[in-house]
Design a protein around this nucleic acid. Structure first.
Length: 217
DNA sequence: TTTCCGATGTACT
DNA sequence: GTACATCGGAAAA
């Protein structure tokens, strides 16, 4: 199985790009992790999206070129990282909610002092930014530029039957939309799957290219 | 195990 | 002034 074409993925609208970003690697310096949980945020049509009310100083990146990083502060405490997706004139992004740490893990522990297990390191949008060292200074960087401080690296796609779909988390508007995507069985996801979470209807029984990481650490 | 809730900065009303 | 795409500690079961 060949690695995916990241440029082709981020060119799609967030809802289509989100499941395809699962399994890809997010790298910051010597640290990296494979994406295991994402949420799609569209533009004017999506009341839960920061882009819903038009461009502002904070969300301007979402209205710009695909493949860029959108970083914002959440609840005044944490950083959250998004991948801008879709055509330039259509705002949208995919929120990275969890990664499976795969390189530079030793360097993550000091930045995640509360973590006790490896699966605590990056199992949430704020956690993964701390673990990888992403902050507001990384806003707008081009993730597909191999020289960028934060970048995406193409790996094998996650087989479709391993992708679970369900409602987004931590939002108050447009709660019903099943725009959250997780890798089934991976222990690094931010929350146990809520009721109503469904496996993708593609029961073809192939082997998993990405079964999950070693539990505990 | 599950639920409840405070901390804290920024955008927006 | 209020809401918020979160996290982690405390208390209840």
């Amino acid at each position: 199985m060949a690695a995916v074409d990241l440029a082709a993925i981020v060119a799609q609208r967030p809802l289509d790009a989100a499941p395809l970003l699962l399994g890809q690697r997010l790298t910051v310096g010597t640290r990296s992790g494979r994406i295991v949980e994402v949420e799609a945020y569209e533009g004017s049509d999506d009341a839960a999206s920061h882009a819903h009310r038009g461009p502002t100083d904070r969300n301007r990146v979402m209205f710009g070129h695909q493949g860029r990083l959108y970083v914002y502060r959440s609840y005044g405490i944490h950083w959250c990282a998004n991948i801008v997706c879709g055509p330039v004139d259509v705002p949208g992004a995919v929120l990275i909610r969890a990664v499976d740490p795969d390189r530079g893990i030793e360097a993550m522990w000091p930045d995640r002092p509360k973590a006790r297990k490896q699966t605590d390191l990056a199992s949430g949008p704020g956690k993964l930014c701390a673990a990888l060292g992403i902050d507001g200074g990384h806003n707008t960087v081009d993730l597909l530029d191999t020289a960028a401080p934060v970048r995406l690296e193409a790996l094998d796609a996650v087989s479709e039957e391993l992708v679970l779909t369900g409602p987004r988390i931590g939002i108050t508007k447009a709660v019903e939309r099943p725009w959250r995507f997780v890798v089934d069985g991976n222990p690094n996801v931010s929350r146990p799957r809520p009721p109503g979470f469904a496996a993708n209807p593609t029961p073809s029984g192939a082997e998993a290219p990405m079964p999950g990481s070693s539990e505990d650490g």
